[in-house]
Design a protein around this nucleic acid. Structure first.
Length: 582
RNA sequence: GCGCUCUUAGCUCAGCUGGAUAGAGCAUCGGCCUUCUAAGCCGAGUGUCGCAGGUUCGAAUCCUGCAGGGCGUGCCA
């Protein structure tokens, strides 16, 4: 916490409020309120600002100006606060002594900068990707995959005990169809018939390879055994093979889940039964007939009695069925069991990352969770779909025809770093355009190179440093005794101020579940650094390495090192590579 | 019909969760490479924050209504 200058000042103001109250200058003890300190972007006002006087003027029955004046008088007793003033409708603005700013940052950057323990080791489960194991991952999965992964990394960074989880939907109808398709491919591999995709069967070529595996392992014996055995054998091979492919694709994206939970396992171990029984006991389940849905209705709709969950009582639009007409569990039923299973494992916060096409699912799942537990928070995050195009032309996909862009295609085309960064250049609720041509071109259009270039430049400086000062010792710049007097350009101070914002940005991004903020922060930091770099292009005296002046060089290198460290730790969070050369 | 979500510069988007004169990139025009990497930097113009109300010291941000786009809408996952 002591590396966060905003928390530092917030604490100071809390202390000030206490003092004012002790002196009976105000009528109410405000020392337990939440004070917010923010950076000031327009430099004319100062470095930092707080709106506390405006927020609480009413409660102490004063005008913001008068209340602010009281706070201001107390604050001016701190010698590192200079130029304190009240502006506009009652902002308290102050400037911080440059030596203090540098010393504060010098201490902060030494440790695990940016790590904050606001999570206090609480257990959080982040479920993401969870694509059906009926084929390879396609481009539609990429955004949720990256956002979920970065969010998990962020939560870890702020002190949560994070489990990254993948839910394998290996139980429902889709799997049944998959196995049917595989059997047809198997017969084809044995030369017994030609594969003809019908009844929604999966036409993809990948089933041919799996069929070959089956033939290798079982010969033609499956044509003779009973249907149930055959189904189970085929399912086991298919799911494990497809999950291997999925895992390997995810690994290429830098994603590795901690836990894989299988829907079939939940059913077979009676978790679904038990969950539904539990809900029955609570009186949440009944048999009934749902009203005909408004809007588009299939031709085959007819009223039917179903086993229903009273999700409407917990805020859903209508009650939801749990058992299909063939007697098996609906997806919703096993998903309730799955979430209870997560709760049983001790997670206090459960986060699900869904695509926008699952938006209709949010309310019923949240309803289910409130029925199961009043302690656990379920957060369902939706990310909008990605529109893929190539040189401005939209790439249309049809899963039925089997011509979809796989995740593998995208990784091969543009690489992991580019995908990950591009996915973070929008907030998750905004739709995202992904144009192959624009992305493949390593141009200005592509922010990931811009950010990686800044990092590479820091590395380049260190390489150059070795040539100019072979005896340079990095321990010198990490020690307390380093002299930072030559760090005084406004742009250098600005970079330090911006770097001081890093721990705060991480907290904002993590607590609001907004991973894209990190990408934007890094972009801006890169921009500030490129700017500083070019000072040295225009004026040799403003370079980072100054021949024959080891002391100045040391302090400049200290700053470069700090920039590099923050870039590096940002890269770790969003999962892109710190390339030393481009 | 109902629910969720989005609408900010010519285009693509940020906007620190209610703050001060709403910001970037692209595109356009002009400048900077015998130089720590020019995949970079600097300078120049652009706004009915979809529309209309409301809440208050203060609204792009919160609430209500309307318009437009996307997604969803029983026994798919």
């Amino acid at each position: 916490m002591n590396d966060n200058i905003y928390l530092f000042f917030e604490k100071i103001i809390i202390g000030v409020l206490k003092n004012i109250y002790d002196k009976r200058l105000i009528s109410e003890d405000l020392s337990c309120i939440r004070v917010i300190v923010e950076p000031i972007t327009e430099n004319d006002f100062g470095d930092f600002s707080s709106n506390v006087a405006m927020m609480y003027a009413k409660r102490v029955k004063m005008s913001p100006q008068i209340f602010g004046k009281l706070i201001m008088d107390e604050l001016s007793s701190f010698d590192f606060i200079t130029n304190i003033n009240i502006a506009g409708p009652g902002f308290i603005n102050w400037t911080v002594d440059r030596e203090f700013l540098k010393t504060f940052f010098k201490k902060a950057i030494k440790g695990d900068y940016g790590y904050t323990n606001i999570g206090c080791g609480k257990k959080v489960n982040v479920e993401y990707v969870s694509a059906n194991p009926t084929g390879p991952l396609h481009c539609g999965h990429v955004r949720g995959a990256v956002l979920g992964d970065v969010l998990a990394a962020l939560l870890k960074k702020v002190g949560y005990d994070v489990t990254k989880e993948y839910y394998i939907n290996d139980y429902g109808n889709q799997v049944r169809i998959l196995i049917k398709s595989l059997y047809e491919r198997y017969l084809e591999a044995l030369g017994m018939k030609t594969f003809e995709p019908k009844d929604g069967m999966y036409p993809g070529e990948y089933l041919k390879d799996i069929a070959q595996e089956v033939v290798k392992e079982h010969g033609d014996t499956l044509t003779r055994c009973n249907e149930e055995d055959r189904y189970n054998i085929l399912k086991k091979i298919a799911i494990s093979s497809l999950m291997d492919d999925i895992k390997s694709d995810l690994a290429s994206l830098g994603i590795k889940h901690d836990v894989f939970t299988s829907e079939t396992m939940l059913v077979e171990q009676n978790k679904v039964n038990e969950t539904i029984d539990y809900l029955k006991q609570k009186g949440c389940i009944y048999k009934g007939i749902l009203d005909m849905p408004k809007g588009k209705v299939g031709d085959d709709w007819e009223p039917k009695e179903q086993t229903l969950f009273k999700t409407k009582a917990f805020g859903d639009d209508t009650d939801r069925p749990l058992i299909k007409s063939d007697g098996s569990w609906t997806y919703f039923a096993s998903d309730i069991a799955y979430h209870l299973y997560k709760i049983e494992r001790g997670y206090e916060t459960i986060i699900d990352f869904f695509g926008a096409d699952h938006g209709g699912y949010v309310k019923r799942m949240q309803a289910a969770i409130s029925a199961l537990s009043d302690k656990v928070e379920l957060k369902i995050l939706l990310c909008q779909l990605v529109k893929f195009s190539d040189n401005g032309k939209e790439v249309r996909m049809s899963k039925r025809a089997g011509n979809f862009i796989t995740l593998r295609d995208i990784i091969d085309a543009v690489g992991k770093d580019v995908i990950r960064f591009i996915m973070l250049t929008r907030k998750s609720e905004s739709p995202l355009d992904f144009d192959f041509k624009a992305v493949v071109e390593q141009s200005k259009m592509n922010p990931v190179f811009y950010v990686q270039y800044a990092y590479a430049r820091t590395c380049s400086i260190f390489r150059q440093l070795k040539k100019s000062f072979p005896e340079f010792n990095f321990d010198d710049i990490n020690g307390d005794q380093i002299n930072l007097d030559s760090i005084k350009l406004p742009e250098e101070i600005n970079i330090i101020k911006f770097l001081l914002d890093w721990p705060r940005q991480i907290i904002i991004a993590a607590t609001n579940y907004e991973p894209h903020k990190i990408a934007f922060y890094l972009y801006e930091l890169a921009s500030l650094f490129h700017n500083l770099w070019n000072f040295g292009k225009n004026n040799e005296k403003l370079r980072f390495i100054i021949e024959n002046d080891i002391e100045t060089t040391k302090s400049k290198i200290w700053l470069v090192n700090a920039v590099q460290k923050v870039l590096r730790s940002g890269f770790d969070i969003i999962g892109i590579s710190p390339l030393e050369e481009l």
